[in-house]
Amino acid sequence: MKHQATPYLTFDGKAKEALAYYKEVFEGEVMNVQTFGDADFPTPPGYDERIMHAQFKKGALFLMVSDSFGEQSVTPGNHIALVLEFESEEEINNIYERLSKEGTVHMELQDTFWGAVYAKVQDPFGVIWDLNHTKG
């Protein structure tokens, strides 16, 4: 793995408000904001202005943020995932296989439009893992 797991916070349409709040509280920087409307991805009506992905940084503090998508509901306990960035496709394949064996797959391991191999798996203990390997 490339580095420590990164917290990924998901909100139900309030990601912009949360980012503004964190910017004020921590005096940090909001970066790489992409809305669902910006993405080359089919989105439900009314989602164009919701945040698909954004980053927040202040010193060593680094968070990723998005709004929920489609039927995904956000409740305390399922709105935080840990993101792992992998060095190789072999490494992500091995971890995905092990996690999905006893876990619940939320998104199958697949190529993405952002140039990565990605999957989302919830382990048997309720922890949600976003697995990502950026190609190239």
Rank of each mutant, 00 (worst) to 15 (best):
M31Y: 10
E85V: 03
L99R: 05
G13Q: 05
V117F: 06
E17A: 10
Y8E: 13
T112Q: 06
A15M: 07
Q4L: 06
M1S: 13
K14D: 05
Y22Q: 04
F62Y: 09
P45M: 08
Y8C: 05
P45D: 13
G136V: 13
A39E: 14
F69Q: 06
F113K: 10
A15G: 02
K23I: 00
V65N: 06
L131N: 08
K58E: 08
K101I: 07
D38L: 09
V117I: 15
K16T: 00
T134L: 00
K120C: 10
G28H: 15
K101Q: 15
A20S: 09
T134D: 03
L19M: 14
L99W: 07
L61D: 00
K58C: 07
F125S: 03
V121T: 09
E102F: 06
V83D: 11
L19G: 03
Q110A: 15
A18C: 11
D111H: 04
K16M: 00
W114M: 06
A20P: 06
E91F: 05
D123Q: 08
K58T: 05
S73E: 14
I92H: 03
Q4P: 02
S100K: 11
V25D: 03
Q110S: 10
M52S: 02
F36K: 12
M31Q: 14
G46Q: 08
G77Q: 12
G59P: 04
I80F: 09
Y8A: 05
L63T: 02
E102T: 14
P124G: 13
L131E: 08
P76H: 02
M64N: 03
V65K: 03
D67E: 12
G28Q: 08
S68G: 11
G115P: 09
G28K: 14
G115K: 13
D40N: 09
V83F: 11
L109Y: 12
A119E: 03
Y22I: 04
S68P: 02
E97W: 04
L109A: 10
M1C: 11
M1K: 13
Q34A: 12
G13L: 12
N132K: 08
G70K: 02
A119S: 13
E27C: 07
G28V: 10
